[in-house]
Amino acid sequence: MSEVAIDREIDRSKLQVSDEVAIEITMMNKWYGDFHVLRDISLTVNRGERIVVCGPSGSGKSTLIRCINRLEEHQKGTIVVDGIELSSDLKNIDKIRSEVGMCFQHFNLFPHLSVLDNCTLAPIWVRKEPRKEAEDRAMHYLERVKIADQALKFPGQLSGGQQQRVAIARSLCMNPRIMLFDEPTSALDPEMIKEVLDVMVDLAETGMTMICVTHEMGFARQVANRVIFMDQGQIIEQNEPEEFFNNPQSDRTKLFLSQILSH
């Protein structure tokens, strides 16, 4: 869809991919009732990778990343996150969830809590950190997403872009090793998309492992090291961004790219 330019130098030297495996998905399948949403998904993500997942609506891309922190349950195959296999064991699930941050399309901030309390809630209640320590770190991350001056406001008083930045800070407060983004800019006005993308670029430069479902092809070109195209529950094509955009192999990819890049 839109291609917001990231008009700053990205320090490519910081974008290092290590050999360590962060996420390993093997032959994963999922059904909603009779509907086969995810088909034989296999994907290995190394630490430090920035992966953009794209595809037409209903292709299963959101479902895929929601399986990684078990917001959705898969029925076949394995998902191993940080060496822990996702099974129905609740302890494993909570452990993985506290290590994997997630940002949603509609931010999903807690409207009854202030921005600061949104950020400190999980560290205090899940990690049992002292309040002071949690608040200090929350302020640090709010500073980093440039919204520290709004810390005492409630989410309802912020713009969409500001809310999404708070949501990113909230996830970071748990010191996640992996961040999942589920269409983080799709609900935003054009002028707010950029402020969120800037924060995501910053995050990439810290070496964070990121999987982003997004239609921001500018972000994919400049930040991602791999682009995955999905259609009808399958991974159709994956490649480095340069190759992916300039030399798509499959017809479906070509069609998709022609549709989203034509305007």
């Binding site: 922190n69 078990r70 917001l71 609740l90 909570d94 452990k95 969830r97 506290s98 994997v100 941050g101 997630m102 949603f104 509609h106 931010f107 999903n108 901030l109 807690f110 409207p111 009854h112 809630l121 999980a122 209640w125 899940v126 909230r170 996830s171 748990m174």
Partner: peptide
């Protein structure tokens, strides 16, 4: 989304009910 955000942060059932869901 409120249930999902609470889950995604690693809050267990009782904590997410007590801190997120029930107050709202």
């Amino acid at each position: 989304g409120q249930y999902e955000a609470a889950d995604a942060l690693g809050l267990d059932y009782w904590k997410s009910m007590r801190l997120i869901i029930l107050p709202q």
